[in-house]
């Protein structure tokens, strides 16, 4: 699997079983974020393919995934509840075999993440960490089996980081999949890892012609 744009990666191939997590590591600028964005369907593949077995055939792979990037996609003018309710209604849920999501109400997940008391407040009043937790809450209100997490623990304190890891492990137990790019080690249970190395010049040359 590769992505031909300017300089990213080539000859990459992996498979992930349901209930497993994949941690993508590697030096800065090697394309961890690009890999996640590719899986999320935001960047198109120049060659190769993505497949999801047991998925809904009329939907693309990307529509089975939640993408959790560096930006929180929180609108300060809307209240916390309104922010979450919009993503719940707007994101189409994806159901696949082997994946049995827990049903969360909007208020439940906010309580679980420790920001239940803010639900009526405009999101402008939230601190950076609280905004981040609100963004995490989005993953739970609309069930999708694959989570693509780009540095999920940035801006979270130790407490909420541990909480998030618990929630991630729970997601894995229910048959979900997680692909995450991170620098800090995460204690996820069935864990595979993928290390991206910087490409050498010879590898890059043919790609430049494609892109």
């Amino acid at each position: 699997m590769d992505r031909g744009d300017r300089r990213v990666f080539a000859g990459l191939s992996f498979s992930l079983e349901s209930g497993n997590a994949l941690v993508v590591t590697g030096p800065n600028g090697v394309g961890k974020s690009s890999l996640l964005r590719t899986l999320a369907g935001l960047v198109s593949l120049s060659e190769g393919s993505l497949n999801l077995e047991g998925g809904q055939s009329e939907r693309s792979v990307a529509e089975h995934t939640h993408y959790f990037g560096h930006q929180s996609a929180v609108k300060p003018a809307l209240s916390v509840k309104e922010n979450l309710a919009f993503w719940r209604d707007f994101t189409a849920p994806a159901h696949v075999s082997n994946f049995d999501p827990k049903e969360y109400g909007a208020q439940d997940i906010l309580e679980d993440l420790g920001i239940g008391h803010t639900s009526e407040l405009p999101a402008a009043y939230l601190s950076a960490g609280q905004t981040r937790r609100l963004a995490v809450a989005r993953l739970f209100v609309s069930p999708r089996p694959i989570w693509l997490l780009d540095e999920p623990t940035s801006a979270l304190d130790a407490n909420s980081e541990a909480q998030l890891i618990d929630l991630m492990n729970d997601h894995l137990r229910r048959g979900g999949m997680i692909v995450t790019a991170t620098h800090t080690p995460l204690s996820l249970s069935p864990l595979q890892s993928l290390r991206l190395e910087a490409l050498s010049i010879e590898d890059l040359a043919p790609l430049e012609e494609i892109g």
């Binding site: 420790g114 008391h117 803010t118 407040l121 405009p122 009043y125 939230l126 601190s127 609280q130």
Partner: peptide, 14 residues
């Protein structure tokens, strides 16, 4: 008050 309500992060800390 809202700023204070938001920053009263977890019930315990608040």
């Amino acid at each position: 008050l809202r700023l204070r309500a938001a920053s009263a992060a977890r019930p315990a800390g608040g």
